[in-house]
Design a protein around this nucleic acid. Structure first.
Length: 362
DNA sequence: GTCTCGGTGGACATGGTTCC
DNA sequence: GGAACCATGTCCACCGAGAC
């Protein structure tokens, strides 16, 4: 357990219902409440750090903070240099040596994985034993057994293993390796709705000149001033619905952006516009941690009729984007730098300050 | 002409939630 | 309990530009 784990009280025992869905909304809410109990004050200036401490992770293949797809970030490829720059910048921001950054981020996932491990240990003895009972005594392989991996382990460590470990020890080791690697696949679930939850948790802890109501994953028609959809029409949900007196902000939170998701932005907005019921403006905001210049540029420049599609395009920290592209000469990177400079791509801090009613930098 | 590299986007895997 | 849907990252193929 790292120092930060101890500081944040990770020894709390997870309730059964939370452990049953370690990555579900209930357990996320429980873990977030625990994190913020001891995480210190939340301000617009440090909000991005809380998001990174909770959600950002280390790419296992590069051992660097993740800022782009793993296959593009392998040593020798262009995003490896950018990942190094990002890792270096973040380590400095957190006042850490680069090797220690891993201990200070990814808190939510690491805690959820602990709860998942609890479930696996306690849950296997019941259903697992029942399922295997008809095949008992017939030499069926155990889950996680991997003869090829076992052979690699034996071959690599042959000179250091005397005597050679028993087969069941090697099998136990391969099972642990498989479990460790498969956990990474579960991260997607946490980064998805977890990003919305973390933003909401931060908003709950800030003060606003005009009181702010925050709703996550709310049906559009449950926000004030929007019609119900037609009976045969699917209910439209909003990642984050914010209400300040009569002003409504519909925010879409995407940790990263893909082309297919870009298409959704326009169709979502068209639905919001069509179902708007009171003839008043609403804000449409994109909050992201995307680093790809082309995707950020597209989000900044996308238009509907005669206006930008998004009222604000918000990046967790545009300074990190500048660091990543500091040596890039491409048209896309130049466009993104220009969008940061002219205020089209704003920081999470800036957006929170706008919501607080202090539109100047704070 | 061939190779390498960066950019792009479709297909897919995984797991949570909702609905029936 | 299962199907459908939604979220994400990864895998993979393709394309175009530039170097040789």
């Amino acid at each position: 357990m790292s120092d930060s784990d101890q500081a944040l009280g990770s020894s709390d025992k997870a309730p059964k219902e939370a452990v049953a869905r370690a990555f579900g909304a209930g357990n996320r809410a429980r873990l977030l409440a625990r994190y913020f109990e001891t995480a210190g004050p939340v301000t617009p200036a440090n909000a991005w750090q809380h998001v990174y401490r909770l959600l950002l992770w280390i790419d296992r293949t590069t051992a660097l903070a993740h800022c782009y797809e793993s296959d593009k970030a392998q040593p020798g490829r262009s995003w490896y240099a950018r990942s190094l720059a990002f890792h270096d910048w973040l380590s400095q921001e957190f006042d850490l040596v680069p090797a220690k950054l891993a201990d200070e981020i990814d808190w939510l996932f690491r805690q959820a994985v602990k709860d998942l491990a609890t479930r696996l240990i306690t849950g296997r003895s019941e259903s697992y034993e029942r399922q295997r009972e008809p095949y008992a005594g017939r030499s069926f392989p155990e889950p996680g057994e991997d003869p090829e991996l076992a052979a690699i382990i034996r071959e690599t460590l042959r000179g250091w293993l005397n005597p050679e470990p028993p087969a069941e020890v090697i099998a136990s080791l391969t099972r642990r390796i498989h479990t460790h690697l498969s956990q990474e696949n579960k991260r997607k679930n946490l980064v998805g709705e977890g990003f919305e939850d973390v933003i909401a948790a931060i908003l709950f802890r800030l003060n606003f000149n005009i009181p702010l109501e925050v709703k996550t994953r709310i049906a559009l028609h449950d926000l004030p001033g929007f019609h119900q959809p037609a009976p045969n029409e699917k209910i439209k949900k909003v990642d984050l619905g914010l209400i300040q007196e009569k002003y409504r902000t519909l925010a879409t939170a995407k940790w990263s952006i893909r082309a297919d998701r870009e298409e959704q932005f326009m169709s979502d907005f068209q639905t919001y516009e069509r179902l708007e019921a009171v003839g008043q403006d609403f804000a449409y905001v994109l909050i992201t941690n995307e680093f790809d210049a082309a995707r950020l540029r597209a989000a900044c420049e996308r238009r509907r009729q005669n206006a930008p599609l998004f009222t604000h395009v918000v990046h967790l920290n545009p300074a990190a984007v500048n660091v990543v592209y500091r040596e890039a000469q491409s048209e896309g990177s130049a466009a993104v730098r220009a969008h940061i400079e002219n205020g089209r791509l704003i920081s999470f801090q800036k957006w929170l300050s706008i919501l607080q009613g202090a539109s100047s930098d704070s």
